[in-house]
Design a protein around this nucleic acid. Structure first.
Length: 112
DNA sequence: CTACTGACCGCGA
DNA sequence: GTCGCGGCCAGTA
């Protein structure tokens, strides 16, 4: 656990229910542009017991990062559908469920 | 030190 | 839609 991880977790925790964000976007929101891989690593090291909407984090293509059919894949897919997010072939249409500019600003952007 | 790997990304063909 | 390539960087051998 370090500063970077803490900021990454905070950014993920801010994703609203029924919405998703990409690894790259989370990295950027955490003040770590270009460090998408670090986000993946941080998620893999999530402390036990920590509540985090990790299932709302996808690749920039909208694809679930886990191998199709794996435990993680099924779990993530299940959780997303459970909150109304459309998952087709392990992929989510970011144009519909991704954080658009307005919502993004309302969430993380600098409030006027 | 090099080499390889990994819940990634963007660009070009 | 597919491939390939370079970028990113922490961990491990």
């Amino acid at each position: 656990m370090n500063e970077s991880h803490a900021r990454i977790y905070a950014a993920i925790a801010a994703i609203p229910r029924g919405r998703v964000a990409s690894y790259g976007a989370i990295a950027a929101r955490a003040g770590l542009p270009g460090r998408a891989r670090l986000v993946g690593r941080a998620l893999g090291e999530t402390p036990d017991g920590m509540e985090l909407p990790w299932h709302r984090v996808l690749r920039s293509s909208g694809q679930i990062a886990f191998p199709v059919g794996s435990r993680g894949f099924r779990e993530q897919s299940k959780r997303l559908k459970a909150e109304g997010v459309e998952v087709r072939n392990g992929r989510v249409p970011l144009s519909t469920f991704g954080l658009d500019a307005d919502l993004d600003r309302a969430l993380w952007g600098m409030p006027g």
